[in-house]
Nucleic acid binder design. Structure first.
Lengths: 230, 230
DNA sequence: TAATACGACTTATAAGATAAATTCTATATG
DNA sequence: CATATAGAATTTATCTTATAAGTCGTATTA
């Protein structure tokens, strides 16, 4: 297989995706440095740099004589942007979707709670703008998925906690995985829009308890629908 | 500065720690490849591999002519094991501790809920073993910090959700940051032990609602004590 | 003034050589 | 025969040098 420019990046993505796809056995099964060079027709420099990037993400280890081996899944940086994008490309399953929603159910209600306490006017405005886009999407004026991602990301941003903010990519991926099964997620579009309006209104009015509660209700409904399909 | 063996790894850690310490200005301020080679007396290969590892973790970007620049904090992989360890070494502040506890308050109650539903007998046993160590620690027979880390990690493991499992390093770091202020965390040791016993008992008996509730109570108490010191 | 071409600088890729670490094997020794 | 030790083979780690490609600034030119 021949790769164009940005060799290191391309090779990293190709190998990362292949690993997450399960194309190499855990504990062994990766080709050696030299074999990767041959197979993809790249220099050792590029190969080694790609290998370093993948080990930085916890996917592989590389030692003299042992070679390059795939690490067990518990070592993978599941919150890494690239790892998430490879998961999205390779493994969209309902049970994975359930795991995503479980994390959302843990994080997002607390994020909404924090946002209702700490959001700046500008951050509130971002949430509201995204809400308006969601409402427009109901009428087909805007993209439904993008606007929903913008809405939930804006809440995370307004939490003021850098760990929550870091989860924007995670939520992005979770929602995109969800679209693979979109017909299962929302009972009807109007309820969904309504839930988002409630979340925003409680954040805006600074009602932390209620903001957390309506976010929990919203996500529990989604989780219920995912579980009912398993 | 001269570095011994494992040059790439050492250089990665040295630079990663320096970046998180704020020794290089965001947006610029990193020395060029050639300067790093000189300063640390390593070859370009090792330098480039270290740079690749750091960009894989979202700390820096590297482009021709632009050089190596520190990325804004929102790009950092805050859930990466190495990044967390550098944070632990460099920035233990009360406001950071608060952010850690806020994440724990989001994740751990849900993890306990899931554990009470899905834990295998073997996983239950691990949680119980850690609890026993915590009880022993009260009498000075075991290390208090290690046993508490083991307890909370075992619950995450028992959640059966790979994202929660991935957070073990995070909890580990959160608890270690907490020890920098340990006197502020627990009102008294006995209450703490008691809370852990309640958490375990509810997980063991499969009482998901109560397991979530007592975990929330426990962490809210900790959060309250941290906030009272800010 | 604006568009283009050129030069300088920095990272990206390549290729070849040596060092270090680890595994396996064979040999020697009890 | 069992075991420990030495060494050979293999693979990654590091170093060096050379060339390519990309980016920015500048100067030249219309």
């Amino acid at each position: 297989m021949k790769l164009p420019h940005n060799l290191t990046q391309q090779l990293t993505h190709t190998l990362g995706l292949a690993i997450i796809n399960g194309q190499y056995a855990v504990g062994k099964g990766m080709p050696s440095e030299a074999e990767i060079c041959e197979q993809f027709e790249v220099s050792r420099s590029s190969t080694r740099e790609a290998v370093k990037m993948l080990s930085a993400k916890g996917l592989i280890s590389s030692r003299p004589k042992q070679g390059i081996r795939v690490l067990p899944e518990t070592n993978w940086n599941m919150f890494d942007t690239d790892v998430l994008s490879w998961i999205l490309k390779s493994k969209p399953s309902l049970s994975l979707l359930k795991e995503f929603v479980q994390v959302r159910l843990a994080m997002e209600p607390v994020a909404a709670e924090l946002a209702s306490q700490h959001a700046t006017p500008s951050q509130l405005h971002s949430i509201e703008a995204a809400l308006n886009r969601i409402e427009d999407a109901e009428n087909g004026l805007d993209d439904a998925l993008d606007s929903e991602i913008a809405f939930h990301s804006a809440i995370l941003e307004a939490s003021g906690n850098r760990f929550f903010i870091q989860l924007k990519d995670f939520i992005n991926t979770a929602l995109r995985v969800g679209t693979r099964y979109q017909n299962y997620i929302y009972e009807n579009q109007h309820d969904m829009v309504n839930a988002h309006e409630q979340i925003f209104n409680n954040i805006k009015s600074g009602n932390a308890v209620k903001a957390k509660e309506v976010t929990t209700d919203f996500l529990e409904k989604i989780l219920g629908r995912v579980e009912s399909k398993l």
